[in-house]
Write a protein that binds this DNA or RNA. Structure first.
Length: 737
DNA sequence: GCGTATCGCGTTTTT
DNA sequence: CGCGATACGC
């Protein structure tokens, strides 16, 4: 295969087209065909860096580099899979023999393969973040922390501090005094907690994400044999999203490449948004120091967005305190400026977005090409209700992971105790479901069974209280049943479901159907695994975003509208993007102030959000927010928006129908275009509703009116679907009695 | 009095 | 969902 050089102005075709390997611009071509030695590719948003990496892989294979010697490290496993798949299509060869994945996934593989050099037994269990939080919780209650009157920081904060201290390579006391001075009074408690946390993980052969990295680093550093073996195995190392790597990862890369220095790192300092968990975008700046002789290549052409969007995003990032000037340009045609919409309140904001989305879909836009992004998971609640009441389907990303939902954790707990009988956390999950059994009783049971060589068997010898004996015996029976040797994961699943199903029905009565669907999908997923260990590791390391998404979905069918946190939207792109809740007290996060390190990161976060858009970008904010005391407080637009020149966007004031805040002439244009109110059908609006009425909804079925929270709204407690707030303008609600 | 069940309310971001 | 405050039952 040959690569033909095209001029910089030649536009790269859509990245989905695999027959386009010749259409690379000069900079991309240089990166793709680079020979031996370290390369740093600084790539702007939408500059085709993924494409470049794919072609690089294809180029190497075409030049008879054995696939086994390529190591591709990406941010998400999904990205790695996609790259290998596309590279495979480019080369007409299987790329399956390339090692590719996340740092943590790769770490897991290498530690199982080479861990014996450090004296590891391979049977460790990986805990994900949610479990780590659970452990902290367990320890917190048993350690009796915090003096009277003081609220001890929550477990999420603790975990951030613990992992931050590992990632940033500084001691906890320094970290706290530097970056979280308000926690100084808890320093001793946190240190104590850390000690017990480490001991706990050690006792139970558990590792969390950070331990994997630390041990990978130790493996390379402390075992010359392992270092040499691994480094000569992987002769070509490629790292995507390099700005998201932390100190340990940078050191790992350095050691991995010590025999050959064939490293290609790709990243964009302007998109560094993971500083809070230890990522350091100075890693990019330091790369040439770590690898002397590094060639630096810049990709500045953007193949994603139209020029007006780029103008806006360029000016967002140009306000940054520290910037490495890199101005993106594009040849994609399009003149429509981004819209900044000021809504009266959160409902107005949700309504505007839902209206606009409905119109786009009616005009034939694939819902899967539209995304709504926001800072925090709960910012989208209002919109979710609005969309549900209009029967618009969506998929929410970020926030809670599937493996973090209660019912999935329950099932996984059964699997976990089989692999690691000392997995106290999973035991306590299972035991807590027994009626009349609470935290205290669980602690007693666990203390008892942990004494024994075989906790699973010891369970039978614990004398249960009279009131909960029956449930306890039932649990013992299942555990005994699934502990039989040589059962396939599917068989175990079926066996445990016989016990769990009735329990589950009682426990999650409110949204039973949805959760049950998850379990059905989990069953399918389990069926693909032959052994338990790899199933448990996989679900801990990289939980599937949504197993309800059909893996064999026909690509021709329409996708779903995406709601996502900005963090989870990284690396993706959509035709139309909405960014929600860009109000002063919401974005940046209220705890960060100008001058903080975090403040600049928040700005980059907005940059990342805005650069996801190809053709249409809407930035919205409410002028009124609900304060803690059910009072409304006025807000203005986020400071990041305020510092932009008004030339860059079209301002629309949703609080007055006919006036614009800034530029009246623009408003007429955009209202007629997208935001014109259509007369909605007044189906239910005329009827009078009262508290306590029985009603029937075409989708949710029968229910009772709980509350009338506002004009044209009712809060209905549905018999089968929980409580929902419905908009009478849209909901088809019949009065039954 | 200890421990469990229940309700109401607030929630940064995550490989 | 998880936390705290409060209420009930052994």
């Amino acid at each position: 295969m040959q690569y033909t050089l095209f001029s910089d102005n030649e536009q790269a075709p859509s990245s989905d087209n695999t027959a386009d390997f010749k259409d690379l611009n000069a900079a991309q071509h240089k990166a793709v065909t680079h020979g031996e030695g370290p390369v740093l590719v600084i790539a702007g948003a939408g500059s085709g860096k993924t494409r470049t990496l794919i072609h690089r892989v294809a180029h190497l294979i075409d030049n008879d580099v054995p696939p086994e010697s390529i190591l591709l490290l990406t941010f998400t496993r999904r990205a790695a899979k996609e790259m290998l798949d596309r590279a495979g299509r480019l080369t007409d060869r299987s790329c399956g023999r390339i090692t590719g994945g996340t740092f943590h996934g790769t770490s897991n593989i290498l530690l199982h393969r080479y861990g014996h050099y450090l004296g590891y037994r391979p049977g460790f269990t990986i805990v994900d973040r949610a479990d780590a939080e659970g452990i902290i919780n367990l320890l917190k209650s048993s350690l009796d922390l915090a003096g009277a009157g003081k609220t001890f920081p929550n477990k999420r904060t603790i975990i951030n501090i613990l992992s931050g201290s590992i990632n940033k390579n500084i001691s906890i006391d320094n970290l706290i005094s530097q970056q979280a001075p308000h926690l100084t009074e808890f320093l001793d408690d946190i240190l104590l907690l850390k000690k017990h946390y480490e001991q706990f993980k050690f006792d139970h052969a558990l590792m969390d994400y950070d331990d994997l990295l630390v041990n990978w680093y130790r493996l390379l550093k402390e075992s010359p044999e392992a270092r040499h073996e691994i480094s000569s195995q992987y002769q070509y190392i490629m790292v995507d999203e390099y700005q998201d790597t932390n100190h340990i990862q940078a050191k790992i890369i350095r050691l991995l490449a010590h025999t050959h220095e064939n490293v290609m790192a790709v990243g964009d300092d302007a998109q560094s948004i993971y500083n809070f968990r230890g990522a350091d975008f100075y890693n990019i700046i330091r790369f040439p120091d770590q690898f002397p002789g590094t060639e630096v290549i810049k990709l500045e052409q953007n193949y994603r967005s139209i020029q007006p969007i780029l103008d806006l995003t360029n000016s967002i990032i140009s306000c940054a305190k520290e910037k490495f000037t890199k101005t993106l340009f594009t040849n994609i045609e399009g003149t429509e400026k981004p819209v900044v919409y000021a809504a009266r309140n959160e409902s107005g904001e949700a309504k505007f977005i839902a209206d606009t989305i409905s119109e786009l879909i009616e005009d034939g836009t694939d819902p899967g090409r539209i995304a709504v992004l926001f800072r925090s998971g709960y910012h989208s609640y209002k919109l979710e209700m609005e969309l549900t009441s209009r029967m618009l389907e969506f998929e929410k990303r970020g926030g809670l992971k599937l493996t973090e939902t209660a019912h999935i954790k329950d099932v996984l707990s059964f699997f976990r105790i089989l692999i690691n009988p000392w997995d106290t956390l999973s035991w306590s999950r299972l035991l807590l479901h027994l009626d009349k059994v609470g935290p205290k009783t669980v602690q007693k049971i666990i203390a008892f069974i942990s004494e024994h060589d075989d906790p699973g068997e010891a369970l039978e010898h614990f004398k249960a209280g009279k009131s909960w004996q029956d449930g306890f015996q039932a649990l013992i029976a299942v555990v005994k049943d699934i502990r039989q040797p040589n059962l396939s994961p599917s068989t175990i699943f079926e066996k445990l479901m016989k016990y769990y199903e009735p329990l589950f029905e009682k426990l999650y009565h409110d949204d039973y159907p949805k959760r049950h669907k998850d379990l059905d999908q989990l069953k399918i997923l389990i069926g693909e695994y032959g052994d338990l260990q790899s199933f448990v590791d996989d679900t801990a390391l990289d939980p599937p975003e949504s197993i309800s998404a059909d893996p064999f979905a026909d690509p021709a069918t329409q996708g779903k509208l995406i709601l996502s946190t900005i963090h989870s939207s990284k690396g993706l792109e959509w035709d139309t993007v909405f960014v929600l809740s860009l109000a002063d007290s919401r974005f940046p996060h209220p705890n960060v102030f100008p001058g903080d390190l975090q403040y600049e990161e928040e700005r980059r976060l907005l940059y990342v959000a805005a650069t996801r858009a190809e053709n249409r970008l809407y930035l919205t904010y409410p002028m009124e927010l609900m304060s803690p005391d059910r009072k409304f407080i006025r807000t203005t637009m986020s400071p990041f928006l305020r510092e932009l020149s008004v030339e860059r966007y079209t301002a629309v004031n949703g609080t007055r129908q006919r006036e614009s805040l800034y530029t009246p002439s623009f408003l007429e244009e955009s209202t007629t275009r997208h935001h014109q109110k259509k007369p909605k059908k007044q189906l239910s609006a005329r009827k009078t509703y009262e508290k306590g009425m029985r009603v029937h909804h075409s989708f949710f079925g029968p229910g009772t009116i709980r509350e009338i929270p506002g004009p044209r709204r009712v809060e209905v407690a549905f018999d089968r679907h929980g409580t929902k707030i419905l908009h009478l303008d849209f909901a088809e609600l019949e009065i039954v009695s």
